[in-house]
Design a protein around this nucleic acid. Structure first.
Lengths: 159, 159
DNA sequence: TGAAAGATGTTATATCATAACCGAATCGCT
DNA sequence: AGCGATTCGGTTATGATATAACATCTTTCA
């Protein structure tokens, strides 16, 4: 898979993500309603994390009815529960999960310049985190690993 | 060093933290004013992260004058710049740094039951993070590694 | 078909954080 | 000591993120 910060046909990312979501929700008996799918599509608009209120603003542009914050947050909560998106707490923003349905650990590389964010499932990180927890007798239920910096492209550009 | 979730003389933690802060600020020519030191002391009240508005409430109890949010946030910004505290973005809260002035990477173990939070500088994690970044040609400027779960004591208590 | 569960609409408010402006305190210099 | 520059904190207002609570509508399924 090519990296998210390389040029690519992004419509393909969107349609694949939506298709996977439909399949997964059907398998689980979860209801991917119009609104939820719409919000998921908006999250997948780009590989940059998007805030709840930005989603709200997009919805206001694209839909007849103007939604209120709880509407968006409920859709986001659903998508989080289904593992279709992730929340980045260092940005208060959301991003699509590139491999939903598959058990994985996430590490996010967030470019502070172009904001493109890449999700990695890195074995060495997973193992070191696990061994750290074991050392301390700590039982992890949730891990937020968010690395901010410059992606390779922005480094070159700013060189 | 004994773990923060073991019983210990916490007044010692506070006084050591304050003393280190005074020394470091003096070395750097940074002004650790009454208010900043007071806020640092409140952050060190416990090994549980504290929110800005909780600090504000404590200040209101302990001081004549009732402070406003910017006052607290400015003090927190100063303490962050000086490396005396850390911000936990998954909690929107702040915690004292146990070894300020020493260059280190932080990994936080946050107990979801007792909320006691331990800061670890774990070599294997540091290395794996670094190698992940290298793999991707990513240049890290800031890392937020926040692991939520159950500390050893709360695991025992909850069976 | 009708009761229960689930989804969304709606209003209000909680929670976290900062902009902008001003006066007071402190510092560095002569 | 006096003065100008800088930093600090007070104050008001507001921005940004998130949720509680209750009403209504839709879907499910016995």
């Amino acid at each position: 898979m090519t990296s998210v910060n390389q040029p690519h046909d992004h419509h393909l990312c969107i349609s694949e993500a939506l298709q996977e979501a439909r399949t997964l929700c059907q398998q689980k008996g979860a209801r991917l309603t119009y609104l939820r799918e719409k919000v998921l599509e908006l999250v997948w608009q780009s590989h940059q994390p998007i805030g709840a209120y930005d989603i709200l603003a997009e919805l206001a542009k694209q839909e007849e009815r103007v939604a209120q914050p709880p509407t968006v947050y409920r859709a986001l909560d659903f998508l989080l529960e289904q593992g279709l998106i992730h929340r980045l707490s260092s940005l208060n923003a959301f991003i699509g999960c590139p491999h939903p349905g598959k058990k994985h650990n996430s590490c996010f590389l967030i470019c502070q310049n172009c904001r493109v964010t890449q999700e990695i499932d890195h074995q060495a990180i997973n193992q070191s985190i696990a061994s750290c927890a074991t050392d301390q007798g700590f039982k992890i239920t949730d891990a937020a690993i968010e690395l901010t910096g410059l992606c390779s492209i922005c480094q070159e550009a700013q060189g």
